[in-house]
């Protein structure tokens, strides 16, 4: 009798735990650009980025599969994967962190800004990272958007001298997610 009671409590507790409020998407978009004027555009888009936001505490995680970045020029995509980002060895780019002072009930149809702090892992290198993100909620879908700059050298990505004048030293990144529960 005691045992069944215990089991019942455990089951109840586990359902309570799993009932965290999570908003997520498997089709977030990240694009980056490192173009230099008058040279070929260095730009790629990944439309299959995963992200999960825990609306109870503002924890946010995002994962992009590096091979999912598509360039206009096939050879550029090949070089990006094989020589720079080495996507076979490091297939994932991951962000893990937390929205600062996040209160879910304050998110509305008008845009509000939050600081997002955490760590970003690219090319096997983890770096502390923070950026400001814009949030709004329309019809129970949370739109999260952010823009920031990253330096390839910080992530141990080496750009050969011959092409270094054709690739910007700061990579401009834009990320957009429509998170639903």
């Amino acid at each position: 009798m005691k045992l069944t009671f215990l089991i019942a409590i455990c089951l109840f507790a586990s359902t309570v735990c799993s009932a965290q409020h999570k908003y997520s998407s498997k089709t977030g978009t990240i694009d980056f650009e490192a173009s230099v004027p008058s040279f070929e555009e260095v730009k790629a888009v990944n439309e299959n980025v995963s992200a999960i936001l825990n609306t109870d505490n503002g924890e946010f995680a995002s994962l992009a599969l590096v091979k999912g970045f598509r360039f206009k020029i096939a050879l550029m995509e090949e070089h990006f994967n094989e020589n720079y980002i080495e996507s076979s060895q490091f297939p994932k780019a991951i962000f893990k962190g937390k929205l600062q002072d996040f209160v879910f009930s304050e998110v509305s149809e008008s845009v509000s800004e939050y600081m997002l702090k955490g760590t970003i892992t690219i090319h096997g290198v983890t770096e502390p990272f923070e950026t400001s993100v814009k949030l709004k909620k329309v019809n129970d879908v949370i739109e999260l958007q952010t823009e920031f700059e990253l330096k390839p050298e910080k992530f141990n990505i080496k750009i050969p001298k011959i092409v270094s004048n054709k690739i910007a030293t700061e990579v401009f990144v834009k990320a957009m997610y429509s998170l639903s529960n």
């Binding site: 997520s24 498997k26 995963s50 999960i52 994962l63 599969l65 091979k67 999912g68 297939p91």
Partner: peptide, 16 residues
């Protein structure tokens, strides 16, 4: 499709 990897967040394999 083309296999681009495994997504730990959702525990799914992704193809594009």
């Amino acid at each position: 499709g083309r296999c681009i990897g495994y997504d730990d967040l959702f525990e799914i394999v992704k193809l594009d």
